[in-house]
Simulated scan of single mutants.
Amino acid sequence: MRINPAIAFTLILLAAMFGSGIVSASWGYSLGRQALTGIRQPETRPASASTASRGTAQTSDFVLLNEEDILKNIKARIEGGLDTAD
């Protein structure tokens, strides 16, 4: 009984693809593991309840602006009455 060359070629290509997938996966895993050496996960989340209970003050630089002031500023810039370099 003779093996069909098309089937043999297909099986060879399938085995080569499977092998290259395994090699690629292991190489990528080792590169990623090497890149992450020395990096560790934080022990707690920064905004967890445990930090708030310790009495640490949490400051925020977030400032809400008045919409009317923003619209006046935009209208003045459109009319050319205000310097646009602010």
Rank of each mutant, 00 (worst) to 15 (best):
R33D: 14
A85T: 13
S53H: 01
S60Q: 12
A16E: 06
R33Y: 06
I39E: 09
M17A: 15
S60Y: 05
L11R: 13
L36K: 03
D61P: 02
I7S: 11
L11V: 09
S24W: 05
N66R: 09
S26K: 13
N66C: 04
D61F: 06
A85W: 00
T10Y: 07
V23Q: 01
S53Q: 13
A52F: 06
E68I: 12
P5D: 12
I70D: 07
A47S: 10
L13W: 03
E43G: 04
V63W: 03
D61I: 04
G81K: 13
G19H: 03
P5G: 01
S20R: 01
G80S: 02
M1P: 11
F62Q: 09
R33S: 15
A16K: 06
L64R: 15
F62R: 11
I78F: 01
W27V: 05
A76N: 07
I39N: 14
G19D: 00
L36S: 02
W27C: 08
L13K: 10
T44D: 01
L65K: 12
S24P: 04
T59G: 11
S60G: 13
G32N: 13
E67Y: 00
L31M: 04
I70S: 12
W27I: 09
G38E: 09
A6L: 09
L31W: 03
M17D: 07
D86G: 10
M1Y: 02
G38M: 06
R2T: 14
S24Y: 07
G28Q: 14
N4V: 03
I39L: 12
P42S: 09
I39V: 08
W27Y: 11
A35N: 06
G19S: 12
F9H: 14
V23A: 11
E43C: 03
P5Q: 14
A57P: 00
I7A: 10
S60E: 09
N4C: 14
G81S: 05
I78G: 02
P5C: 08
Q41T: 09
F62Y: 10
P46T: 12
F9P: 01
D69Q: 07
A76D: 15
M17N: 10
L65N: 11
Q34D: 15
L82G: 03
V23F: 11
E67S: 02
Q34S: 14
L31F: 01
N66D: 15
W27R: 08
L31K: 03
L13M: 11
L82H: 02
S53R: 06
E79N: 11
S24K: 10
D61H: 10
S26D: 10
D61V: 04
L64D: 12
M17T: 15
S30W: 04
A47M: 13
I7L: 10
W27P: 00
G21D: 05
K72A: 14
L31V: 05
P5I: 03
S20W: 07
I7R: 10
G19W: 01
A15K: 04
R77F: 05
S26H: 14
R2F: 12
